[in-house]
Simulated assay, not measured.
Amino acid sequence: MRTNLITAILILFALQINAQSLDEKIENLLELDGTIRNIENLITQTIDYQKQNNFGISDNYWEALEKKVTKKSLAEFKTLVKPVYSKNYTESEIDNLITFYNSSTGKLVTEKQPIIIEELNLPLMQWSQNLGSFIIEEIENRGENESTSDEKEKFKTEFKDKYGLQILNLTDLAIDKENNIGDLLIDFGKTDGKKDVTKIIRVKNNSNKEIEFQEPKFLSNEVIKFDLGNEPLGIGKTRDLKITLIAELAENKSYSMSSINYNNGERIQFGIKYDAPAKEISFKISARKLMFKKLKQDFSKPYVFILKNTGKKDFYISDIELDKQIAYLNWNKETIKPNEETEIRVVFSKQLIAKQKNTDSNLKLEVDLTKGEKGGFSSYANETIELTIE
């Protein structure tokens, strides 16, 4: 009897699937596999972001706005997704996916997937950092082996044939044996971060014409400065091509490609390597403590903290945490360049204070500063500062 009942349910389910149109099946699949739930979460996060930047608007408005936006945006999302699904899946494959996500195993996958993604967040971040470090370490070790005298002579000959230049101080430079980063490796080594370091490529013009050097136009790097001379290098003449590492801008381990342009378009490519100390975030703030004034209206006047970048590196406010949700916050989410100022604005609300049932209006702000450009690939330092209104 039990077997017959299960069979009947499965047949009924199969008939319901077949009765649906392809578009309806795709919508069903988007619900079952968690896609719609993820989109709804994204909409909520977007609304919350705007809520933080538009204080003084009632909660009822935000709730109504979220419903309106969700309805419109979900409809647009489904319109965009359906053609992609119908192009990449046959109707039979979509039926099979729906059957799977309706099964106990499929429901388990949908239920556990967000939890697994969240728990994997930190381990994957560490794994990614370890992967990057390993790759960089392997790259940095290139060119460190001593070259034999035969290899050096062969390199000198090939360099002269290729560029019309003879290198007179090859013992001070490294050869990129794998030739992946360029011909030479300019290794500044481990620096103290205080004094500029200059490396020299001493060359002699062994070609049959003058050679004019120019700084690179596309592979430029603000950390590296060139002194290549202002006049063309005459036939048979010798010159020191100076490459300087700017101490106040260089930081951490770096291995990159650069070049010297010559004769209107040709390039001598080489690697730049250095290991410099990390630079700390440098800032000045107008006041770390402001005095609270009794609220005479529903909202206080803005309390303003002015933050200035006094260093050489960009940073941005990555987050601000309040110890009590009794005020609205507003701050610039973009990168703060050197010598630029930005404001952190705080507005107290009687409604929020009453909602929290809190008679103590003292407020602490934990402000996280992250070095680097907002949205950049990596940041090497951060700092947390504490601001108070009491």
Rank of each mutant, 00 (worst) to 15 (best):
A14L: 09
L15P: 00
Q16N: 10
I26D: 00
E27T: 10
L32G: 05
D33A: 01
L42D: 12
L42W: 08
D48K: 12
D48A: 12
K51G: 01
Y61L: 09
K71Y: 12
K72G: 01
A75M: 09
A75K: 15
T79R: 10
V84K: 11
Y85F: 15
S86F: 05
S86I: 13
K87S: 15
N88H: 13
N88F: 10
Y89S: 08
E91W: 06
I94D: 01
L97E: 14
I98V: 15
N102I: 02
S103W: 10
S104V: 12
G106L: 05
G106R: 06
T110V: 11
I115M: 08
I117G: 00
I117W: 00
L120A: 14
L120Y: 07
L122G: 03
P123I: 03
L131A: 11
S133F: 08
I136W: 06
N141S: 10
E146F: 12
E146I: 13
S149R: 09
K154Y: 09
K154H: 09
E158S: 14
K160G: 06
D161W: 02
Y163D: 00
G164C: 04
N169K: 08
T171V: 10
D172C: 08
A174G: 06
A174H: 14
A174Q: 15
I181C: 00
L184A: 03
D192K: 00
K194R: 09
K199C: 03
I200S: 09
I200W: 03
K204M: 09
N208R: 04
P216G: 09
L219D: 06
N221A: 06
V223N: 03
L228P: 03
N230P: 01
E231Y: 08
D240N: 15
I246T: 14
L249R: 12
K253L: 13
Y255T: 12
I260A: 01
Y262W: 05
N263A: 03
N263S: 06
N264A: 12
N264S: 13
I268G: 01
Q269C: 08
Q269T: 13
Y274F: 13
E280W: 01
S282N: 11
I285D: 02
K293V: 11
L295N: 08
K296I: 11
D298T: 11
D298Y: 02
F299N: 03
P302I: 07
P302T: 06
Y303P: 01
N309L: 04
D314W: 00
D314T: 12
F315E: 03
Y316A: 00
D319K: 15
W331T: 09
K333E: 15
N339Q: 12
E340Y: 03
R345G: 01
S349E: 04
Q351Y: 11
K355Q: 15
Q356G: 07
K357Y: 10
K357R: 14
L365W: 06
E366L: 13
D368N: 12
F377P: 04
Y380D: 12
T388I: 07
